[in-house]
Structures are given as structure tokens and as C-alpha cells.
Design a binder for these strands. Structure first.
Length: 493
RNA sequence: GGCCCCAUGGUCAAGUGGUUAAGACACCACCCUUUCACGGUGGUAACGGGGGUUCGAAUCCCCCUGGGGUCACCA
């Protein structure tokens, strides 16, 4: 039997990192086993559907390099793959259950008791929030039918039979037993005619011949209800694999609004390398066992298996993520990095200076690429070459105010004025000549120049850095640096 | 609160009865570098607690503690 797995998001917002992780594990498992990966859209809550969300999923997965074999966008033999287009299917299944007496119409007013048992009252236990408290379960069939015909609003509840515990067989966690008494009668069709998740998911997974349900651990406690649905129809349930939850720094389930963890689209917008996200997420809850950590998508497909997925929740560690992002960004070929940077300039609406042609950009990136995590980082890392104005930081200012620095810059500037050649080699030679003439070397020679030109005491290789700056701008900065120290001199007297 | 899951350094994690308890991120130190970053070397740091089982427990069992998830006519 070939493996069939699915990722079934609801289009209620952007795709977040936890969802990507779940999708990725499904994808990897399908590819590893030679099975099918299916994308289904669980859009049965019309009120919460966000327009554009489904396209955003598709775009995000394409960007990440995930591919699927059947889905709401491409169709397939088990369609439709949009739950809102399958309501007739859920209805007819509910009718079967109704006819068999395994479900009943519930006319109770919609329970507003969705709140958890009030903590203040010492907790009376879960109030009547679950199950039907109005006696609908024991209504005579013809009476129920009459009220339905009369147009009375109603939901359909599953009649949870008593019996032995329900056992979830989970590939990752083993067997987990749930008492049926804890389940009660749950709604399968809402009064608006839409199915609830626990009903819909079981029917779709069965009808779509899903063999393995791989999803987040938060779904574990719902699984027995779904198993009840399988049981009622006499279906063979799929295998389950509940993934450890992705946690934030305070060990809570990752929220969609976590300030540190961006929606996937945001990573794309900032010019991250998608493979970095895939690689990082693959290692969250799964371990390849060896000591390597950098894996291509292909390598992940080959190695991934459910038997090495962990059970404990995994914290999304931002620092490690950035490290991973950097691993990929600095491995980019120069022209690739430049492409991302140009794209990023577009996103930011940033106007690159006229001298920033491709070859200039390649030289510029190569000087800072080792430290970048995404294309957006380039604009701060390279600001000294990009921005017309220098901002002298405190250290630089202090240095420039010394007499030694003043002399070096003065000499360097006049050497520039006499020689129009401006490239790395010429600058290097000029620096050395100035050093000889002044009897200055080492830090005392290089630092003033660096400070004058970049406003900082640290940065990439000075000569390369300098060569990136047009001669006129460089000379202007030296003049400004001299003015800085002169101004101080006057003040001082 | 009920039910359920989980528990190795700050974080990700290897480990499946006998190990000096890997590795990575982060952190610290040193080296490289005229600076910074990268890189290299080294270091600090863990089996939550208590009972068992066993010749021997991070590994198996029980209890406790702690953390998390879930309790909707959301998915």
C-alpha cells in the first residue's frame, strides 16, 4: 500500500512556522516512502476564512521547495480538496448516522458555555459545555423529524456509545487509551449545516485514502472522537503520528503572533534562503542521528523517517535559526546573493547608488556575506558604502580628534589629490607611502583612515572597503574628518 | 479543575542496561586578523526528585514534582 499523507491547513491567516514544520514532515515522509503528499484546505468555518490565505499557502510552499501530488490548487483523483466543496458528502454521511441512530438532532440553543470551568468557583468540573443537556438524545425519532421538518434550527450530535476505552495507536507515542465516558456526545454538523472538524477530518481522511495522519500533538486529545467516527462507519482508521509541539521561548505553544517567529512570507520578504528554514525546521523534533546538521531537501527526503521523531516539545531557538540562515546565506554564489539583494532593494523601496552595478554589488557582498543571515541584512552591513553620509560613532570621533590621526588623514588626502588613480592596489600603495613619510605604521596608520572613511573602528578589509567608495566621496569624507578635529581644536583653545 | 502528552546542559539533541553521557547553537578564553566578522583550538554547562527491578540504571516499573496540550455548533 502506498503511503498517502496530507497537510490540511485552514485558511484563517498566514502560514506560520509550526504549520510549515508539520507540512514539511508530511512532505518528507511522503518523499521518503515514495508516497503521495496531499494539500487539503479545511475551510469549513466561513466566518474565519481569510481571503488570499490559500494562495499564500501555495506561494509559501513553492518558495520552500515543497511539492505536492494532489491538492486544492491542482486537483487530483480524490477531489474536491476544498472542504467547503464537500459539504454534501458530510451531510450524507451524517444522514447515514442519523438513520442508524448513531447520531441525533439537537435543538438546544447554541451553548454559550464555551468558557473553561470557572477557576474562581473551585471548579465544578466541565459544566454542561459538552454533550446535550436538553434531552435531545432521547427524543423520539418521529418527534425529532417533525421538528426538523418544521424548520427548527438544530445541530447534529454524534451519539458516543459506552464501551471499552478507545485506544489511539500512535507511531511516535505508542498506545494511548481514552475513557469513552470522557467523550460525551459531540456535534458533527453545526446548525449552519457545516461539519465540525472532528467529523470532517475523519471522513476526508478516509475518503482520500490517507494512510498516515501526521500532525501536531495538540490534535492528540481529539483523536478518540475521530476514531469514534471511523468506528461508526466501520472504517479502518489510518495510522497516527502526533508530532511534538513547537514552543516559544517561554515553552508555550508557538503563537501565530509571536514577535520572534515570523510568518513564512516575512522570511521570504526579507530575503532569507528558503532551504535554511527547511533545514532548521527539519531538525526541530527530528534528528538524523549523526553529527551533520546541514542537509539539502533531497538529503532530508532520503533520511527522514518517523522513527527518529522525538516526543518532547521543541523550542524554536532564534539564535540557532539565525546561525542556520547565515550558513545558507554565506554559501550563496555571489550572483545569487546580488539577485536577492536587488530584489530586497525593491521590497524596501531602496534606491541603490548609481555606482552600484552588479560587479560592484558582488564585491560589496563578498566583503560582508559571511555575516549576513538574509538579504535585508546587507543594507545595514553595507551602509557605509551605500549611504552618502557617514555617521561617526563615538570611538571613531575620539580617534579622529587626536593629532596623530589628523596628520595621517591630511597626508593621505593630499596624496589623493595628486594621484587620480583609485583602486585597491593604488590605495594600498598610497597608504604605505603615507606611513613611510610620517613614520607611522600599524594601527596608528590604518585606523585613522578607516575612521575617516567609515565612521567606525571596525569593518571588513580596509583597502577593499575603501575601493568600494567612489574617490570623490572618500575624499569628501576625509575633509569632513579633518574638519571634525579642527573644530575641536578651536573649541579647546 | 478533568483527560492526555512530555521530562538529558540555557536551547536543539545523540544515547535505547555497563559510555570519560556525543554533536550543534549560545556563552567564555585563546589563536588567526593592523580592526570587526568568518575561521580554528579549548573551556563552562545536563540525565528534575524519591522509591523499586537488576551484579549494574539517563536507559525498565511506580509515585511525586515540573512543563505542555486539550476540554467549542474553531480547525
Amino acid at each position: 500500500m502506498t503511503v498517502r499523507v496530507r497537510f490540511a491547513p485552514s485558511p484563517t491567516g498566514h502560514l506560520h512556522i509550526g504549520g510549515v514544520r508539520t507540512a514539511l514532515f508530511n512532505f518528507l515522509y511522503a518523499r521518503h516512502t515514495g508516497g503521495k503528499f496531499i494539500l487539503r484546505l479545511e475551510d469549513t468555518d466561513a466566518d474565519r476564512n481569510v481571503p488570499g490565505a490559500e494562495q499564500a499557502f501555495v506561494d509559501a510552499f513553492h518558495w520552500l521547495g515543497l511539492t505536492w501530488d494532489e491538492g486544492f490548487d491542482i486537483g487530483g483523483p480524490y477531489g474536491p480538496y476544498r472542504c467547503s466543496e464537500r459539504v454534501a458528502i458530510y451531510r450524507s454521511h451524517a444522514d447515514q448516522l442519523l438513520a442508524a441512530g448513531r447520531a441525533y438532532a439537537c435543538f438546544c440553543p447554541q451553548s454559550d458555555a464555551k468558557e473553561t470551568p470557572s477557576e474562581e468557583e473551585g471548579g465544578e468540573g466541565p459544566a454542561g459545555a459538552m454533550g446535550c443537556s436538553g434531552g435531545c438524545a432521547s427524543l423520539a425519532a418521529d418527534e425529532a423529524l417533525r421538528r426538523i421538518r418544521a424548520g427548527e434550527p438544530h445541530a447534529i450530535r454524534f451519539r458516543a456509545p459506552s464501551g471499552p476505552p478507545i485506544v489511539v495507536r500512535d507511531i511516535i507515542r505508542g498506545e494511548i487509551a481514552f475513557e469513552r465516558d470522557d467523550l460525551r456526545d459531540f456535534v458533527i454538523i453545526k446548525r449552519d449545516g457545516m461539519p465540525t472538524y472532528n467529523f470532517q477530518v475523519a471522513i476526508d481522511d478516509h475518503l482520500m485514502a490517507i494512510t498516515h495522519v501526521i500532525r501536531g500533538e495538540e490534535h492528540l486529545s481529539n483523536t478518540p472522537r475521530q476514531l469514534l467516527v471511523y468506528e461508526a462507519f466501520g472504517w479502518q482508521p489510518p495510522q497516527f503520528a502526533h508530532l511534538p509541539i513547537v514552543l516559544d521561548e517561554s515553552r508555550k505553544k508557538l503563537s501565530k503572533r509571536d514577535p520572534n517567529v515570523l510568518p513564512v512570507s516575512a522570511y521570504r520578504e526579507r530575503g532569507y534562503v528558503p532551504q535554511a528554514i527547511v533545514n532548521f525546521l527539519a531538525l526541530l523534533g527530528w534528528s538524523p542521528g549523526g553529527e551533520e546538521e546541514i542537509f539539502s531537501l533531497e538529503a532530508l527526503c532520503e533520511r527522514f523517517d518517523l522513527d527518529r521523531v522525538g516526543r518532547a516539545g521543541a523550542v524554536f531557538d532564534l539564535a540557532k535559526f539565525q546561525w542556520m540562515a547565515n550558513q545558507y546565506f554565506k554559501a550563496l554564489a555571489p550572483h545569487e546573493a546580488v539577485r536577492l539583494i536587488r530584489e530586497q532593494a525593491g521590497v524596501l523601496g531602496y534606491r541603490l547608488p548609481p555606482y552600484a552595478d552588479d560587479s560592484w554589488l558582488e564585491r560589496a557582498v563578498s566583503l560582508v556575506q559571511d555575516g549576513l543571515t538574509c538579504a535585508r541584512d546587507f543594507f545595514s552591513a553595507a551602509s557605509v558604502w551605500l549611504e552618502p553620509e557617514v555617521a561617526y560613532d563615538e570611538e571613531a570621533r575620539a580617534l579622529l580628534e587626536t593629532e596623530g590621526a589628523h596628520r595621517v588623514i591630511e597626508a593621505y588626502l593630499s596624496a589623493c589629490e595628486q594621484d587620480p588613480v583609485w583602486d585597491e592596489a593604488a590605495n594600498r600603495a598610497r597608504t604605505q607611502a603615507v606611513g613611510r613619510a610620517l613614520g607611522v605604521k600599524g594601527k596608528d596608520l590604518f585606523m585613522p583612515i578607516r575612521a575617516a572613511l567609515t565612521g567606525q573602528l571596525h569593518g571588513p578589509d580596509l583597502q577593499k572597503s575603501m575601493a568600494l567608495l567612489p574617490r570623490e566621496i572618500a575624499m569628501e569624507r576625509m575633509r569632513r574628518a579633518l574638519a571634525l578635529s579642527e573644530a575641536r581644536d578651536h573649541q579647546g583653545r
